[in-house]
Design a protein around this nucleic acid. Structure first.
Lengths: 196, 196
DNA sequence: GGGAGATATACAGGATAATATATAGACAAT
DNA sequence: ATTGTCTATATATTATCCTGTATATCTCCC
């Protein structure tokens, strides 16, 4: 029913989720009801232009009418910043991988199984969220400590400390405000390419 | 009554008049009634998103949701086509054309496909944005290097370097403030003028 | 298993967009 | 003046948005 406007409303949802804003929060900011927002995002109904503008403003977006001719250029610009969305240094990826490997090998003999679960969960998130250089350092040191412990036994307490540390990292990364961006070096290209 | 969406609907009118299309004609193309279009353009009523999309499509426009942060860059692009109908030296045009030709011929065997996409997009932008003489020089040297590589094989790293260079040019050009203009000598206009 | 936060659905009613049609005013060109 | 094109405006009817509120479902965390 709302085929025509799907691409737009999906952009809205992507932006909202990207900024980690709930529909309720967005409802408060934009003046629309949560119910309304849900329907718009799902494509159940087609919003009026007024509603679209309200929501966009609440998400710091602007509505632009661009000649089709210039779309490649504009897409390019849009992607250049959304790239910083999932830009993780390969360092970070590798560190997470190391930690997963180590902890798996190390086994969950030490530490409660709840600890183990929390740990895996945290790592899963850290695979996707940007970290500051300092935080990367913490990650690095944790990996080192864990790997050393392979040889000489590690105390339950030390293990708990690491788990706690990682969890803190996770929380920081999850709740970080999207605007105080993390400066990234050059860039990191992955796959990803969408069309309509 | 429709204050929020005035800027958008005015863009619509501007585009329609720019293309010398009558409201009747637009009505035929878009499926809305002429009466409806008139009210939308005058701001008498606020269109639904569906109507906006229909009209936009009929005018070869696309609706883009862009982060406010990127608006300067985007405005830059939009104005590049409408206002100063290209203040590019024929040199620049030719260089971009050479680069496109070379890279196409050269194939994308070297470098990731993401690299290739980034490269093509960058070139697309550089076709429209003004460059300083120095930047033109960089472009020239890149073209030369690429063309030489046709004969003796080029390393993946060297290719990456070129891609990076072009991308830097792109960024500089895109984010350049429009007012600190680049002094242009007299000549500027070449061929090129297409319609639909 | 309970509780909290988030999203999806449901339904009533008032508000408004959108249609179809018709007409009036403005401005050219014959 | 007449004809033609384009735009603004009017009216009536239908369709849909949008709100308000309430509830269902789902996920994650304790």
């Amino acid at each position: 029913m709302a085929y025509k406007t799907e691409h737009i409303t999906q952009q809205l949802r992507a932006a909202r989720e990207g900024q980690k804003v709930s529909q309720r929060e967005l409802s408060a900011r934009s003046g629309l009801t949560q119910s309304h927002i849900s329907q718009i995002e799902r494509g159940t109904m087609e919003p009026g232009l007024g509603s679209l503008v309200d929501v966009a403003r609440a998400l710091d977006l602007e509505i632009v009418l661009a000649p089709k001719k210039l779309m490649p250029a504009i897409r390019n610009i849009l992607e250049s910043s959304s790239a910083s969305n999932d830009v993780l240094t390969s360092d970070q990826r590798k560190l997470v991988a190391r930690l997963e490997r180590s902890s798996a090998q190390y086994g969950y003999g030490v530490g409660t199984s709840a600890d183990a679960d929390a740990f895996k969960d945290s790592l899963g998130l850290l695979r996707h969220l940007p970290l500051t250089p300092d935080e990367l350092d913490i990650l690095r040191r944790a990996a080192n400590r864990l790997e050393n412990s392979q040889t000489d036994k590690m105390s339950r307490q030390e293990m708990g400390a690491i788990v706690r540390e990682i969890r803190q990292l996770r929380n920081a990364a999850v709740h970080r405000d999207r605007d105080d961006a993390i400066p990234r070096s050059a860039y990191a290209l992955d796959e990803e390419d969408d069309d309509a």
